[in-house]
Nucleic acid binder design. Sequence first.
RNA 1: GCCCGGGUGGCGGAAUUGGUAGACGCGACGGACUUAAAAUCCGUUAUUCGAAAGGAUGUGGGGGUUCGAGUCCCCCCUCGGGCACCA
Length: 812
Amino acid sequence: MNSQFEYKKIEKKWQDHWENSETVKCDLKSDKPKFYNLCMYPYPSGDLHMGHIRNYTIGDVITRYKQMNGFNVLSPMGWDSFGLPAENAAIKTGIHPREFTEERIANMKSQIIRLGSLYDWDREVAAHSVDYYKWTQHLFIKLFENDLAYKEDAPVNWCNSCRTVLANEQVIEGSCERCDTAVEPKNLNQWFLKISEYSEELLQGLEEIGDWPENVKTMQRNWIGKSEGSQFELNIIGTDLTFDVFTTRPDTLFGMTFAVISPEHELIDLIMEQSEKKDEIQNYLDSIENKSEFERMSITKEKTGVDTTLKVTNPITNEEVPLWIADYVLVNYGTGAIMAVPAHDERDYEFAKKYDIEIRQVIIDNEKTINVDNEAFTGNGVLMNSGEFNDLSSHEEASKKINEFLVKNKIGDEKTTYRLRDWLISRQRYWGCPIPLINCEDCGLLPEKYENLPVLLPEIKDYINTDGSPLSKSKEFVETDCPKCSKKALRETDTMDTFVDSSWYYMRFLDPKNEKEPFNSNFINEWLPVDQYIGGVEHAILHLLYSRFFVKALRDLGLMTIDEPFHNLFSQGMINFGGAKMSKSKGNIVDPEEYFATHGADALRLYILFMAPPSDGVEWNDGGIEGTKRFLNKLWDNLLKIINQEDTEKELSEDDKSLERKINQTIKSVTQHFERFEFNTAVSDLMKFNNDLSEYLKHDSILPKELKDVLIKNILILLYPMSPHMASEIYESYFDSDISTEKWANFDDSKLENPMYELVVQINGKKKHAIMVETGIEEDDAITLCESNFDINFKEAKKIIFIKDKIINIVQ
RNA sequence: GCCCGGGUGGCGGAAUUGGUAGACGCGACGGACUUAAAAUCCGUUAUUCGAAAGGAUGUGGGGGUUCGAGUCCCCCCUCGGGCACCA
């Protein structure tokens, strides 16, 4: 063993070793208990940033810790390698996205290896590889055949500068996230996956799922957005036109003084025909069309609308009330039309005030003091102005009764709606998985035959979307034969959202080389759900929800029997720099590579674990990395000193016993912290122990051989998951074997307790004195001891409280 | 606006879930070694009064419960995140 921790040499040595060792090659059929440990696969941006380092360090701690605990750990890694950045680079530089992407994957892979994390690289997958996207297409066709994928006209976000559609999540406050151009709505024939069919199950599943952060579950619940209420029909007086409205507040039905229908509602043209003010309505509709989606959706915008001059009947009062068209009613939520109750809904109130529509109060607070002259009242109370329903309590009781009325009179029914919409997966982009469908004039829309997959991404020169998707530029690609009648037919030219690729990659890891099917179902049923999933909180909704949907859909197709993809989820917090998320475009990336060079991977790993609780977001600050490097150097020195001591057999001295207790206490504490993902305090436990060791060595004590071995072994095992290079090196040089084959450390219960401890003496809960006493001291003896040492009158105490034998509190 | 999290020394953060607040680390200050610097080592480091012993104050602010509150309850301020005309 060298006199110094030469991290560069040592890290290289062990990384080479791990690459060729069986340490992480997972045999799925082993009879050890399984543990699927998964870090979210990265988009290959080219360089690791600190967020990746944090993610993969946490993941690696779990891999190594679980291995030592006897689990057969599967820890794979791959690439989310389709997507817009490669395509934009191609537009700029002319370099093919494939070439560009693969170069970046190679670079990132070498950095991941440089971090020293264990991955079973034999299972590596990349979303853009033909072997992978062939099966993405296969699964897509399965969904299509089972009515879970469909094509429909829909508005999309179009960026006219990038000449492409954008996903909702790429639209930041109404503008393109890349070029800041205002996004325009555009109607296109689009592909959707029927995630909404699973709304209820996706919501329910959150109750039964494993250990997920509460905030992620809440975000998913909100996204799914379940509301319960009533739905009923309104008839336009003097016509045979009817439409449904949905409300969560049937208790306010008597207060409905108008109805509103969305400008995009399917009845709009018919309504316009019936209206006396056709021109006004047309003008209004035109004005809406010129507004961007963002403008329309903005809550701060003043509400606008137009009176149709038509009337509808309030079904419970039979009164005639006006029908308006207004864009504050959204066509794609509920029924696209509402009953408006201005007295008890803020939006309706604002609209009614502006257009001078009657505001009728039908609920009053229990103290009967509120009126609606100045604002809407949305709170609880009792019904008024509501006929036979007066004095019922709102919302629940009255809602229930009025709903019963609607049902009894066949006007309406109970109804549950969800905000979750179907998942729009079409992208008019090049660098994605082609949608494997064919349009035949005679036979309609048909999937490519399974045996003809993959539908290869064509080679084209110009990646810009000018008129139609980039794939439409390849005649060879577009023109094909109908799989049914063999006549000339045309391929779909859209590609899939990359979230489709990432919805099933964790399945492919289980069977990455299968050439006959996307995966063997037995592996899926045995190995899924993933036991521990680790990734950034930014994927709390989209990726995690889509993957959950995928599993449920594929289960219903008979491909698997599991219900959820990820059992336990750990969301690490983001690492920001300069107050912002690190990103290339902001130029605030901190490059981990320089720390590999100046401090080493072990010190960087340790620091990133130590700097904050892993679930907290942190501002990057490298001030402390010096500290973890110092710690490793000191530990190396201390262990070297111990190793160089002559082997001796002797009785344990008090110092030895104290050190023995400390290692046992440290094992217990580190193990507890690991189980709870509290790596920051696990690191501090090791530092504390190392300080104790330094103190011990100052006394020129010689450790008896047996304790020496126990101590070296255990401290290295505790260190190994977090700083595996150094732990492996010292372990090998002293014990001449590979630490990765060791079992996790056990502590000895009988060697945890200190023989003496400090008894704290409180008066009225306030610390006044402290005195060293023997462990197990009787309470009476403790009192006697305190009486003789301190000026306390125990006889006059109202109460004497012993707290966990550690504190004696005298209440006076 | 609504829904989640937070607020503890100069800084990152500990605190067994109601029981010694400030572990561990960074930084700073003083000292040793050195011709010097770096590295390393030894001390000090919440604030405040005090020469010291020792005392007082102290976990965003205000109130409360309790022998005892960073931790529980009520009100307020503030920062971060998510959703946002969802009927």
